[in-house]
Amino acid sequence: MSDGLDGLRRDVALGCRVMAHRGLVENILGHISVRIEGGRALVRSRGPRERGLQFTVPDDVRVVDLDTGEIADDPAGDYAVPSELPIHTSVLAAHPDVECVVHAHPPDVVVASLAGFALEPIFGAYDIPAAHLAAAGIPVHPRSVLIRTDELAAEMVASLGDASALVLQGHGVVTTGAEVADAVLRALQVDTLARMHLRVRAAGATPEAIPENDLAELPDLGSAFNRETLWRHHLAALEQDGRGLS
């Protein structure tokens, strides 16, 4: 990933585009934040010519004070923070080890949560990081509300606990990571789990977690494969479809 504010703005913009490209968000919904020094974060905000996440550019990513929730680098007042900014401020405050927070609305995750399906590790080698994520447990926040206050965000953080992914009942998903790629890829893993649960049930079967000994055999292929290579794939797919930033 990139260094410096300009590089991080680009990372956030690309992360938003990847989420839209992979169907995790629709139109103008969803956002990403990245912690920076000085009690601030870069946050995907909405500008005067908002076109949606698939068209996010670095200028849409603004510096936000985590204490006040105000944009610090927009003297003209052209940009607005997301209404659910408390998702980001609360998670970053509660988890000093987290650098990036993603909020997205994957339709399959929403459907699975409404149906009451727990996202179990029903596959193994098909998607090893997703299997490990499910095995660790993906909690569900039971309230289908717009998380726009500190009080509602505190409830959400309590539901998240020490997990790196949280399903919001009838709403979407929150994921965390050390970098943009980590959090976005984790959101994609939750989406894969939900999609496969729904497909198994559509085929007339009941999804079941794979045996513990199969889980134990799943190797950690390393960040070079699970993150760097996979992230390059998603960025290349953006470029191929004419949705990249270059």
Rank of each mutant, 00 (worst) to 15 (best):
M1K: 12
G4P: 08
D6S: 14
G7D: 01
R9G: 02
R9H: 03
V12Q: 03
A13H: 05
A13N: 08
G15R: 03
V18N: 05
V18T: 00
M19A: 08
H21V: 01
R22E: 10
G23P: 09
E26A: 15
H31R: 10
R35I: 01
E37A: 15
G38E: 03
G38L: 06
A41S: 14
R44Q: 11
R46Y: 13
G47A: 02
P48R: 05
R49S: 03
E50L: 10
R51G: 07
F55S: 12
T56N: 05
P58G: 12
D60S: 13
D65S: 09
D65P: 01
G69S: 03
D74G: 11
G77V: 06
Y79F: 15
A80V: 13
A80Y: 10
L85C: 07
S90V: 00
V91A: 09
L92Q: 12
L92R: 11
A94M: 02
D97Q: 15
V101A: 10
H103R: 03
H103L: 03
A104S: 15
A104D: 10
D108P: 10
V111W: 10
A112M: 11
S113R: 05
F117I: 14
F117N: 12
L119M: 12
L119P: 11
E120P: 05
P121S: 11
F123Q: 07
F123K: 02
F123W: 04
P129I: 02
A135Q: 14
I138G: 05
I138L: 07
P139Q: 05
R143K: 13
R143M: 11
R143C: 03
S144D: 12
V145H: 12
I147N: 04
R148V: 12
T149P: 07
V157G: 10
V157L: 09
S159F: 02
L160R: 13
G161F: 08
A163T: 09
L166S: 06
V167I: 14
Q169C: 10
H171Q: 12
V173K: 11
V173S: 07
V173D: 08
V173P: 07
T175K: 05
T176W: 08
G177W: 02
D182R: 04
D182P: 00
A183Y: 05
A183P: 00
R186M: 07
R186G: 04
A187G: 15
Q189T: 08
V190M: 02
A194M: 04
M196K: 12
H197R: 01
L198V: 06
R199L: 15
R199W: 09
V200L: 14
A203Q: 13
P211D: 05
E212Y: 08
A216T: 13
A216E: 15
E217F: 08
P219K: 00
A224Q: 13
F225S: 05
N226H: 13
E228W: 02
T229V: 00
W231A: 03
H234K: 09
L235E: 00
D241L: 12
G242R: 01
G244Y: 05
